Amino acid sequence: MSHTAHIPSHRKPRQSASKTALRAGVAGGVLSTIAVAGAAGPAQAEPVTQTIEMPTITSGLSPAVAASAEATQQVALDLETQAHEDAAAETAAKKAKKAKAEAVRKAEAKKKAEAAAKARAEAAEEAAERASRTAERTTLSASTGSSASSSSPSQSTSSATGSAASIVAFAKAQVGDAYVPGGTGPNSWDCSGLVQAAYGSVGIDLPRVSQSQSTFGTQVSLSNLQPGDILYWGSAGSAYHVAIYVGGGQFVGAQNSSTGTVQRSLDYDMPTGAVRVL
């Protein structure tokens, strides 16, 4: 037996092939895991890189978003302003319509009041005219005595000739026309306007008003009238009414607004005097 036979050996025992293979497999698995993790690392980092870049994209869109918001706000303001303007216009239109209706109502009321006042004035004028004629006749009768009051006007039926005939024809042609204060024709007259136009038809220029016409020409008696003579009511120079004697005890005159232009008998309203122009 060798003297070294009982001395244990200090060398490490050899590992079996199976253990070596196991260790190699473990090591390979770890390395594979590391390799897989290393390979997976860049793929997982990509979203992180994109996430970091998002603020830059968002900041780039902010002015556009702000501009869009500002435009939307301006549109809203414009719509609100338009709504206020439309409401104001509608209110103004309603006020204008109401004011127009009120103005029309007042105008109609004024027109009716004026028409009523005119009718009252015409009625008063006619009443005053008749009263004045009565008073004038009474005064004239008293001043001239009983002989003058008993005399009767001419009832001559002789036909007018020449200019007188033309004047009479003109006057008769106007019978039925309206009486209008200040009227000078062709379809409405006052008393002196009719007389002036009748004489104007034969080229004779008479004064415009009754007072002047009652002294234009020669004074004649009511008992010696001829067709074409101017009849007047009141005193010569202050007459308030005139007409044209047309013969046959008749006269034509623009009397008043109620009767218009008429042909009447002298007995209807006896004149106080007459003048002869022809």
Results as ranks from 00 to 15, higher is better:
T139P: 05
C191D: 15
A198D: 05
C191W: 12
I167C: 03
V168L: 13
P207F: 04
G182R: 03
S166N: 15
G183P: 01
Q174P: 10
A169Y: 05
G193N: 04
L140K: 09
A197N: 12
T215M: 09
D177A: 07
L140A: 01
G176S: 04
D205G: 14
S201L: 02
G182E: 00
S146N: 13
S151A: 09
A171I: 11
Q213F: 05
A173E: 09
T139E: 05
A148H: 05
T144M: 12
L206R: 06
Q211M: 14
A198W: 03
I204T: 04
S149E: 07
A169Q: 15
L206T: 05
A165Y: 04
S214L: 05
Y179P: 02
P181I: 09
I204E: 02
L194C: 12
G203S: 11
G145V: 12
S210H: 06
P186L: 12
C191K: 06
Q174T: 11
V195L: 14
W189L: 07
D205V: 13
T139L: 03
A198F: 08
Q213Y: 02
T144E: 07
T144P: 00
A164I: 08
P153I: 11
I204F: 07
A178E: 09
Q196K: 14
S149Q: 06
S141K: 00
G203W: 10
A169P: 01
T157P: 07
S201E: 02
G145C: 11
A148N: 00
S210W: 11
S192L: 15
T215W: 01
A171G: 15
P186H: 06
S152K: 08
A171W: 01
S143Y: 11
R208F: 11
G203A: 15
V175C: 08
S156W: 09
Q211G: 04
S156Y: 06
D190P: 06
S210T: 12
